[in-house]
């Protein structure tokens, strides 16, 4: 029996082999950041017991301010609703984090679900990244500040988006990833699309050193 191999939702596009360092040759740069851990966390953001237990297990305060996110060395926590968060973690860490959360939250109303197979992440940068987002979404991306997250539309699908460095991260559902990638490619057509080599230390988006993704 062959060793288990993971395949990301955009595997068939062969993006990894096309990736190159970001430069001024294209107006838009994008790539899939595969195999990240995604945990859906549910609980009552007004319940102090829940918030403190979750914060302890995560190692950072659970963001309870609407549409904000919190970042530590190992995780990024996105506020999705008053009772829902998405925890983005390094590859392979989701399982252990789930166990830690379940243990910490025992006795408190909660739900912890490993949803790592259900999502993937797309990096979008370059001088025309904002133009592309205007083409694909009704949300006012010009108003999206660092540290904030927007759940909105992308074409006829949906997305969780936030800023990272000088670019954007788009978390999308696995089964829609093919459609969304094609949609982004078509929207980027006027500006030229480069497949970006996203630095390894920046995969989860937890690194404090931001990469200059808006070259040129």
């Amino acid at each position: 029996m062959s060793e288990p191999v993971m395949r990301s939702p955009l595997h068939s596009f062969g993006l990894a082999s096309q990736a190159k360092p970001i430069d001024g040759s294209s107006g838009v740069w994008a790539n899939e950041i595969p195999h990240i851990g995604y945990i859906s966390l549910r609980g009552d953001g007004r319940d102090q017991a829940f918030v403190s237990a979750a914060s302890k297990a995560l190692g950072i305060p659970l963001p309870i301010e609407p549409c904000t996110l919190a970042t530590s060395e190992s995780v990024k926590v996105l506020w999705l609703s008053p009772d829902e968060w998405m925890i983005v973690s390094a590859p392979g860490q989701a399982n252990a984090l789930c166990s830690r959360l379940e243990l910490a939250l025992a006795g408190v109303r909660n739900q912890v679900v490993d949803n790592s197979g259900g999502y993937t992440q797309i990096f979008l940068g370059g001088t025309h990244a904002l133009d592309v987002l205007r083409h694909v979404s009704v949300y006012d991306f010009e108003s999206l500040q660092p540290g904030r997250v927007a759940g909105t539309t992308l074409g006829k699908s949906s997305v969780y988006a936030f800023r990272q460095g000088n670019g954007y991260r788009l978390i999308v559902r696995r089964s829609f990833a093919d459609y969304i990638w094609r949609y982004l490619v078509r929207a980027a057509n006027p500006y030229g699309l480069g497949i970006a080599d996203v630095p390894v230390d920046n995969l989860v988006g937890t690194s404090t050193a931001s990469v200059n993704v808006a070259a040129g």
Partner: peptide, 11 residues
């Protein structure tokens, strides 16, 4: 009232 933002109808 939960997200605290104005959003377009498509959402």
């Amino acid at each position: 009232p939960h997200c605290g933002e104005n959003r377009e109808e498509e959402e």
